[in-house]
Nucleic acid binder design. Sequence first.
DNA 1: TTTAGCACTCAGTAACCCGAAGTGCTATAT
DNA 2: ATATAGCACTTCGGGTTACTGAGTGCTAAA
Lengths: 341, 341
Amino acid sequence: MLGERQKNILKEIVLEYIKKARPVGSQSLCKKFKVSSATIRNDMLVLENLGYLEKQHISSGRIPSEKGYRYYVDHLMEPSKISGEDMLKLQTIFSNNELDLDSAIEKSLEIISDITNYTSVILGSASKENLLQKVEVVPISPGVVVAIVITDKGHVTNKQITLPEGIDIKEVQKTSELLNKMLFGTPLDLVPSKLEFEIKPIIGNYVTNYEVLYNAFYEALSNFQTDRDVRWNGKANILKQPEFSTVDDVKNIISKFESKDLVSKIEETDDEVKVYIGKETSLDDNVTVIKTKYKTSDKEGTLAIIGPKRMDYERVLNLLEYIKSRIEKKEVRDGKAREEE
Amino acid sequence: MLGERQKNILKEIVLEYIKKARPVGSQSLCKKFKVSSATIRNDMLVLENLGYLEKQHISSGRIPSEKGYRYYVDHLMEPSKISGEDMLKLQTIFSNNELDLDSAIEKSLEIISDITNYTSVILGSASKENLLQKVEVVPISPGVVVAIVITDKGHVTNKQITLPEGIDIKEVQKTSELLNKMLFGTPLDLVPSKLEFEIKPIIGNYVTNYEVLYNAFYEALSNFQTDRDVRWNGKANILKQPEFSTVDDVKNIISKFESKDLVSKIEETDDEVKVYIGKETSLDDNVTVIKTKYKTSDKEGTLAIIGPKRMDYERVLNLLEYIKSRIEKKEVRDGKAREEE
DNA sequence: TTTAGCACTCAGTAACCCGAAGTGCTATAT
DNA sequence: ATATAGCACTTCGGGTTACTGAGTGCTAAA
């Protein structure tokens, strides 16, 4: 379909545009391909007709279209290794035994944001594979208790419960014992249904006045898994990109970042590192999001880098791949409960 | 110092500029004061020479200077009550018994952001008046435990601790018992020093190999009080204000919002509702921050509204005053453990 | 003390010109 | 067939100019 030179021209244009953020003209490619500008122009026309290139106006140079970037990422980009320089900056983090995995992930994405000037987001939530380990009920004042839930992976959440008038603290204790007995070892995502179908029917046998108590605990326990944390780095970085040079562009992207359904748009389900360009992101047509799911023994979530479509695809891909691999390595190493390397 | 008419002219200019965001000319005030524009101009000149008014260029209308806003807030603004409309929107929140105080505060600031189009921030942290109620240690896997700290007000934090090789879980239990005994009822802010000066010297008597254990617990327990949460509402609202019409202004304010020392700049120590204008904010010369400290039985923090200097001072002051009073009322009411009103 | 009158200033807009960069097309050369 | 040289054409962007409207400061009179 595409001639060899045409492919290379497309590649050059993508790389050049990533570097300079200015439309690429035919002249500037002459020396590299040792042909005249007219020849380049002919090829450019072909590429434009196929939808890989665009012009901003009739006599401007070419810029890659989304389809062009996509083609570059899928076919033209040479798989490479992370640069030594980048690696160096990340290495210390993962070989530092002081840092737990969570902090290491956070720290490393912070570094990525710093060195690339893109925006990064970490989406996390307790994994479905967490098993409920313990439900602890601590009275803190008359009529008020705190319910604390601990998973086998060490995650903790809590919820304050104001007891309805006239509930005996003994009833609460009994409820908590019952919950502990029945829920121990239950995967978090199954807790609500287990509460509803196994515990609710029988709780009346153990506890009087169970209705309100049950409801209070139900709420506390089922909130657990939906608990999400979102960490940003360099949220303002994207504004440094020349594509956000008008007030409207800036306002627009900032509003998108603040919007409530951002999490659902960022979340990734694929284990690979994936690239979403422009419209593919469903977040904003002017950005590219490179992201991957990560999964540690106790949490799972998404690592995402958000930048302009003119993003340094190769570098970011490599960085994310590297971090992903280090996360896994660290898991293994931590599992062996510290063994000097 | 200032004549009566001059004061009124200043006031009108402030109000007019707040409403329209456009410099106010002498003509537009003629009817209101029943004098000619020349007279107004003379007064304006006086006000300008005293530093209350500014011009953007030699032949533009006047806008209030920071000093002018300050004078307005301190001397010209008529103390008034919150508008019925605004109150209505907030009322339901505080009379809703389902909502705990925390959520009510959050919800009400959300509403303020919505109706005013300003940005709001809630800074919170566990109060110094929280007393340590319990230290709970839950083993979750060989060599790993979770330390959970609960205060008498129901706040919970936790920290995962990886035990050094060769530590017996019994030692951990003993440590936790010791901590519970010695720290029960200790105000949070005193925990670190108590650990250092009372517990460290004697822990060796109870627990062998105490060094590492002590360090792990020390870190977990002293992080508690510095634990801060920051909640934003309408972070992008400020961009709607016409004062942020150039890319640079926008980028600037966004960076300020993202900066790490924002918390320290926002935090308020005064119990009153206070107004900080422009430079006074130490945050950004183009904004006004109206804020107040709040204090509930278990938490204390700051409520802040950030808007342009051209902010609707009266309205925001009233809103904050109102919320403050409702927070206190609700405290009282909740304390009586639900008594229908 | 207030007012009318007037000259002056400046932001903002629109119209225009011009050079730079780059294109598409056609006719020619390889 | 492919590549090239030449040329007419388009658009952007920056600079200049001219004009208008809003608003001022100042002076002299009421």
